[in-house]
Simulated assay, not measured.
Amino acid sequence: MKITDVLIGVAVGFATGYAVKEACAQKDVSPEKALKQVKSNVQHRIPVNGSWIHMNPEHYEKNYVDYDVYRGGISSNESGQTRQMDFVVDAKTGAILELGKQ
């Protein structure tokens, strides 16, 4: 066996391992995507006029489970009054953990 064959095998193995690691690594949901998911989930019940989200995830604990989350808010205009609601979204999955009045 030639040294070049060994080096090619090592290089291919390394590249394949790196590609699999990157494909399997769970990436965080972007804050923009998380905000879009929140708005689309509540749009059928609440007419959303405005929204905001913190761009940096923060640590959050709920029911003894630790999460990295984005915090944000939405506003709507119902019966001539502006209504504010805050939300907490899991940064890994985009799932809404909390949604409530301010």
Score class of each variant (00 low, 15 high):
L99A: 03
R71M: 13
L97S: 01
Y60A: 05
I74S: 00
D90G: 12
G94K: 00
E78W: 02
K62V: 10
D68S: 10
Y70V: 07
A91M: 03
I74L: 05
H59D: 14
G80W: 08
E58K: 14
N63K: 06
Q84T: 12
K101Y: 13
T82W: 07
S76A: 15
Y70Q: 05
Y70H: 06
K101W: 08
D90C: 09
P57Q: 11
V69R: 04
Y60R: 04
N56M: 07
M85S: 12
M85Y: 15
I74D: 00
E78M: 12
G100L: 04
N77L: 09
L99E: 02
L99Q: 01
D66F: 06
G80C: 10
S76C: 11
S76K: 09
F87A: 01
V65S: 04
R71I: 11
V69H: 03
L99F: 15
V88D: 09
I96D: 00
V69M: 02
G94M: 01
L97Y: 04
Y60L: 03
Y64Q: 13
T82F: 08
G73M: 04
E78K: 11
D68G: 08
Q81H: 09
N77I: 06
G72V: 08
K62L: 15
I96N: 00
G72T: 07
G80D: 11
K101P: 08
T82P: 02
Y67N: 05
H59I: 05
Y67K: 02
D86S: 15
E58G: 15
K62S: 08
G100D: 11
G94Q: 01
V69Q: 04
A95N: 13
V69I: 15
Y64G: 08
V88K: 05
S79C: 14
Q81N: 09
K101I: 07
H59N: 13
V65E: 06
E78N: 13
H59R: 12
L99N: 00
Q84M: 13
N63E: 13
N63I: 02
R71Y: 11
K62Y: 11
E61I: 14
Y70K: 04
N77Q: 09
N63P: 02
T93I: 10
Y70I: 03
Q81F: 03
